[in-house]
């Protein structure tokens, strides 16, 4: 029970990172982006490439920090992957979504994102193959926090949780303390009004894609660090990330943060009741529950249709 709760929090932190960018993009561009979760996969694989590269160039960097499977090269690779993924997100928007936005309606974009997701996933498959890849083959053992009830935690997971929280805190400070943050929130909450007030929408969209891409890359690396890489990472996280966004309320950054944790914890706890085969359906049940009880999400504003 407590173990499931804790594991849920850890998975939740990864979902949260993925949901931050999605909620902003969905709100600003007004479409459900089914390709968004593929950014996690781009990030994880980009980090894999850089990790191998750095480790080969400077072998000393391949030393793991005590207890963690994290190395210096992977740390640097993660930063590089965040930049690369952010740029890819901008590039994809520029090459595809922006053009479709100008021509067709938002729902065509939803479908375009289906196609983009399929392309990204299969390009990754073509390059890396479908087998499971690992940053490090060593198994990092869990620490026993308590024997009864059994409570185990892996050092990597603690690191991931802390790192995720640090990223979120930095983002919070930017949002709440800087002019740029105000502009960003203004656009996220009401794009039309913000534009009237003189916020350059096009530039903000680029920044949002950068941020979303970077956070997704971090989520992808963190996931792969505690599990493994596979071209299907994005596909696997699609529904959880959507669920987090809806739980939090589309457009609400803090909602997405909290939503990620709620989805993670609920999925973990659900296994107490449901057979594990049903776990893929869990995020969907959460979505349904939210839509029944509070359709606008925890922090969303009521929709006026």
């Amino acid at each position: 029970m407590i173990q499931n709760l804790m594991d849920g929090i850890l998975t939740g932190s990864i979902i949260s990172l993925g949901a931050i960018g999605l909620t902003m993009v969905m709100h600003m561009l007004r479409f459900a982006n089914f390709a968004y979760a593929e950014l996690l996969a781009i990030g994880a694989y980009a980090a894999l490439v850089f990790d191998r590269l750095f480790a080969a160039l400077v072998p000393v960097m391949d030393q793991a920090f005590g207890g963690l499977s994290l190395t210096w090269s992977l740390t640097l690779a993660t930063l590089a992957a965040m930049a690369i993924t952010g740029l890819s997100a901008v590039l994809i928007d520029w090459a595809i979504f922006k053009r479709i936005r100008q021509k067709a309606d938002a729902l065509s974009m939803v479908f375009a994102s289906f196609g983009v997701a399929l392309i990204i996933r299969n390009v990754i498959t073509l390059i890396f193959g479908l087998k499971a890849e690992l940053y490090s083959n060593d198994i990092a053992f869990a620490m026993v926090l308590s024997r009864d009830p059994l409570l185990l935690i892996k050092p990597d997971q603690v690191f991931v949780l802390v790192a995720a929280l640090v990223l979120m805190t930095i983002f919070h400070l930017v949002l709440s303390r800087t002019t740029f943050g105000f502009a960003l929130r203004a656009v996220a909450e009401n794009p039309a009004l913000a534009q009237v007030a003189g916020v350059p929408l096009a530039r903000i969209i680029i920044v949002v894609w950068m941020i979303g891409g970077a956070f997704s890359a971090a989520a992808g690396v963190f996931y792969a660090l505690t599990n493994h890489l596979s071209p299907l990472i994005g596909h696997n996280f699609l529904l959880p990330v959507f669920a987090a966004t809806i739980v939090g309320g589309i457009g609400s950054v803090y909602g997405a943060l909290l939503g990620g944790f709620i989805v993670g914890i609920a999925s973990g706890l659900a296994l107490q009741v449901l057979p594990s085969g049903y776990s893929p359906a869990m995020p969907f049940l959460i979505i349904l529950a939210v839509l029944l009880v509070r359709p606008q999400g925890l922090f969303g504003e009521a929709e006026q249709t």
């Binding site: 998975t11 505690t226 594990s276």
Partner: peptide, 16 residues
């Protein structure tokens, strides 16, 4: 314990 393909995490299954 059933292990469904392509899940974000198998921790819960393993914990069980």
């Amino acid at each position: 314990i059933a292990i469904t393909d392509n899940q974000p995490s198998y921790r819960a299954e393993v914990t069980e």
